[in-house]
């Protein structure tokens, strides 16, 4: 018997995501994948899935879905009110849904992206080895919409019997280690000094492609002020500085090449937290502790 769930409402954005499709940048294909990988992996473990299974990344909550079959679900990421048929249940724990029951997410606190895993995993076709929606290049399934039916795979394992798991919560201010390079020599000494500790604010124009940061612009050395950089490969976590001096911190759906200098690259273990940073979040880079 085929298993599925139906999307009732999506909130601002709901996407199918898994671990992404790294390894295709030379063809122009971004890595994509869940921005908060540990949260999706935890949700998958809670419902007995492989960590590589696809789930739903729900931006700012508001997701409502109906189970069309008996299944186990788990909601992870930041703390978020969860209900089944209007009755409050816990996040960060396996929850059983009978056919016809409705799971609803409220508004998350301390982060912006919740992850919903369903036993068996979301079973949409893979493109380049992944089921993730890439918002930059349009690879993968379309963003979810009301009335979409999502096929689920066959459940592989048993839900995990953990007792209590804490929701992740961002601190009031993120401090992110930054390794300078490859193009730090494009920036003047004052800007590089300021980069260690200056406060940035995440702009509301941020998305899965990157966090746009607002603050005092970084300045180039005079000799490079009007130079163009031939396009070069960029990595997830790269802090690229366009002509206006305001950094863009690349997340999973970033373009694979860019023509603006990258002043530094954040530590990979800070990427999940950065994926939870919403508009208005405060951010500082620490360049000193990593030499």
């Amino acid at each position: 018997m085929s298993r599925s769930c139906t999307i009732v409402r999506t909130g601002p954005q709901a996407l199918v995501q898994d671990r992404g499709r790294p390894g295709h940048a030379h063809l122009g294909v971004p890595p994509s994948g869940a921005l908060d990988q540990p949260a999706l992996a935890l949700a998958n473990r809670l419902v007995g899935n492989e960590e590589s299974a696809a789930g739903i990344e729900a931006l700012l909550g508001g997701l409502v879905l109906r189970a069309d079959c008996s299944c186990t679900v788990a909601v992870t990421g930041p703390a978020v009110p969860v209900t089944v048929d209007g009755h409050r249940v816990d996040s960060h724990t396996p929850v059983h849904l009978g056919a016809g029951q409705v799971l609803a997410l409220g508004s998350p606190q301390g982060g912006i992206r919740c992850y919903v895993a369903l036993s068996g995993g979301v079973d949409v076709p893979e493109h380049l080895g992944s089921r993730s929606t890439d918002v930059l290049s349009g690879i993968g399934p379309n963003p979810l919409r009301a009335n979409d039916s999502l096929a689920l795979g066959a459940p592989a394992g048993l839900p995990s019997g953990v007792d209590v798991l804490a929701a992740s919560a961002l601190p009031g201010e993120l401090v992110v280690p930054l390794l300078l390079g490859p193009r730090e020599d494009w920036f003047d000494a004052d800007s590089l000094a300021r980069l260690n500790g200056a406060r940035w604010t995440v702009s509301e124009r941020s998305n899965r492609i990157g966090l746009r940061l607002e603050g005092e612009p970084l300045r180039r050395v005079p000799a490079r002020e009007r130079l163009e950089l031939p396009s070069e490969g960029v990595v997830t976590g790269a802090v690229q500085v366009p002509a206006n001096g305001l950094p863009v911190l690349f997340l999973a759906d970033h373009p694979v090449t860019g023509g603006y200098p990258v002043v530094g690259v954040v530590a990979p273990n800070s990427l999940p937290r950065l994926g939870q940073a919403g508009p208005g979040a405060a951010l500082r880079f620490g360049t000193a502790q990593m030499v």
Binding site: P22, G23, A25, H26, P230, S231, E232, G233, V234, V235, V256, T257, P268
Partner: peptide
Amino acid sequence: LVELVPAARTVLVSARP
């Protein structure tokens, strides 16, 4: 190696963490 990205004047080499 996870990615090998040639570009105009560069090759980006990314390894498994």
